[in-house]
Computed example of a mutant assay.
Amino acid sequence: MRDMTDYARGAAYLAGDYMPIAEAKIPVTHWGYRRSDVTYDVVGVRDGAFFRLDDHIARFRASMTRLRMTPPETDDEIRAILHRTVALSGLRDAYVAMDCLRASPPPGAPRHPAFAPSYLICTAVPWVWVASEEMIARGMHLMIPKVRRIPPESFDPRVKNFHWGDLTEGQFEALDAGADFAILTDAEDCVTEGAGFNVFMVAGGRVVTPARGALDGVTRASVLELCAEEGIPTEIRAIPADEFRQADEIFGCTTAGGIMPASRIDGRIMGNDRPGPLSERLRQRFWARRAEGWHATPVDYASA
């Protein structure tokens, strides 16, 4: 029997077994590794409660169905696995991932994905932030790189995936430009998303987010809900890069960070080089609502 101290760095569920995060490994021959044949989702735990757990599981299932992945676990079983994984870790604030990977075809079977079984990995590790506290305080510095986002006609961005070649290249362009993050555009030079987060702009008091080329983020949906609560008009439409650069305010949003205001885009300083007033208002409201138990599911720590 494992000592619970083994789980101090996090816990994992892998194809039917629970283990400390350091023991979770996959074969290098599996297509999940060799071909990035993986879909995943991430749900956050803050103060001992999941945020929008059922929404994340539903999106995860939709992604698996789209990729024809059929692990043996049902949605109810995935929900129970996530609870137990967090409970084993003992973490009150956790970054909780659910991954579905394709293995590789057994000997003698055709080398086709239809013959490669899929399986589930769930992990809970200490909470991580996409943007640092310093970035949030001063506002993120953004830039639009030369690299373009993989087009939806090639791979549907609404299916969370490990195909990060374009996002990774964009991040190196951001590094070279002295920026924090890159916001990629599509073939029509319209804004899509950043590396792991959706984006919004504020123009004339209206909050606008791209309609195409990005993940349908759960936190993005939460932002739209908050705006409705606060009486802030919203719009979902194509945003040309030039219009985005001239926005009154810009912010990103993600599970691992909530609402993340920006203060610069391609070197242009917005406002007073600090998070804009509407962005900051929404950021504070987001965490206040979270503290009230908004969309919260308490972790069943007894399941450990």
Rank of each mutant, 00 (worst) to 15 (best):
D6T: 14
G10E: 01
A15S: 08
P20L: 06
A22V: 08
W31Y: 04
W31A: 02
S36R: 06
V42E: 06
V43F: 03
G44A: 08
V45F: 01
F51C: 01
F51Y: 08
L53I: 04
I57F: 07
A58F: 02
T65K: 13
P71G: 03
P71S: 04
D75Q: 12
A80H: 08
H83C: 04
D93C: 13
V96G: 12
C100W: 09
A103Y: 14
P110D: 14
A114Q: 15
L120A: 08
L120M: 14
T123G: 01
A124M: 09
W127I: 12
W129C: 07
S132F: 06
I136M: 02
M140Q: 11
H141D: 11
V147N: 02
R149G: 05
S154F: 15
D156H: 02
W164Q: 12
L167G: 15
F172H: 15
E173S: 07
E173L: 11
D176G: 12
L184R: 06
T185P: 01
D186I: 01
D189F: 07
A195M: 14
F200G: 04
V202E: 04
G217N: 10
E230T: 09
D242S: 09
A247F: 03
D248C: 06
P261Y: 02
G267L: 06
G276A: 09
L278T: 09
R283I: 00
Q284I: 02
W287L: 02
E292H: 05
P298W: 15
A304M: 04
